[in-house]
Amino acid sequence: MPENRPPTAPSPHRTTTSEQGSFCFAECVCGWRGPARRSRDRARQDATAHAPT
């Protein structure tokens, strides 16, 4: 009889921010990249909106 296992949950999104010149980007391990922002806080908000907890 086959073992009955619950389905595995998808891997969570893990976001970071990176800087390039005067701009900050939110990035995710899934490949998503947010728009260029001059505000680090706004880039962090983009990341939070992409991967809500």
Rank of each mutant, 00 (worst) to 15 (best):
A49D: 15
P10E: 06
M1W: 05
R5M: 00
A9P: 07
T16Y: 05
E27L: 14
Q20W: 09
E27V: 10
R44D: 12
D41G: 06
T53I: 11
S11Y: 02
P35R: 12
T48A: 15
A47S: 07
P7S: 00
M1A: 10
N4F: 08
T17R: 01
R37D: 14
F23K: 07
S39G: 03
W32I: 06
A51G: 13
N4G: 08
A47W: 05
P35S: 11
H50F: 10
G34R: 05
A51P: 10
A26G: 10
T48M: 07
E19L: 04
R14Y: 12
A26H: 06
S18Y: 12
Q20T: 14
G31R: 07
E3R: 01
R42A: 13
M1F: 05
C30T: 15
N4A: 11
P12C: 05
T53A: 14
T16H: 07
A47I: 08
R38E: 03
T15I: 09
P2F: 00
F23H: 13
C24Q: 13
T48N: 12
R37V: 06
R5L: 02
E19Q: 14
T17N: 01
C30L: 07
Q20A: 11
W32G: 03
R44H: 13
Q45H: 12
P7V: 00
E3N: 04
G31V: 06
R14D: 08
P2W: 00
D41T: 14
A49Q: 14
C30R: 07
R37S: 13
E19V: 11
R33Q: 15
H13I: 12
G34Y: 12
T16V: 05
Q20C: 10
S22N: 14
R5I: 00
H13K: 04
R42C: 05
V29T: 14
P35N: 11
D41V: 11
D41A: 13
S18M: 09
F25P: 01
A49L: 15
A9R: 02
R40C: 10
T53N: 10
P52I: 04
M1K: 04
T16R: 08
S22D: 15
P7E: 00
G31F: 05
P2H: 01
E27K: 11
R40P: 13
T17S: 02
G34W: 07
T8M: 00
T17Q: 02
R37G: 08
A51F: 07
G21E: 10
G34S: 09
M1R: 05
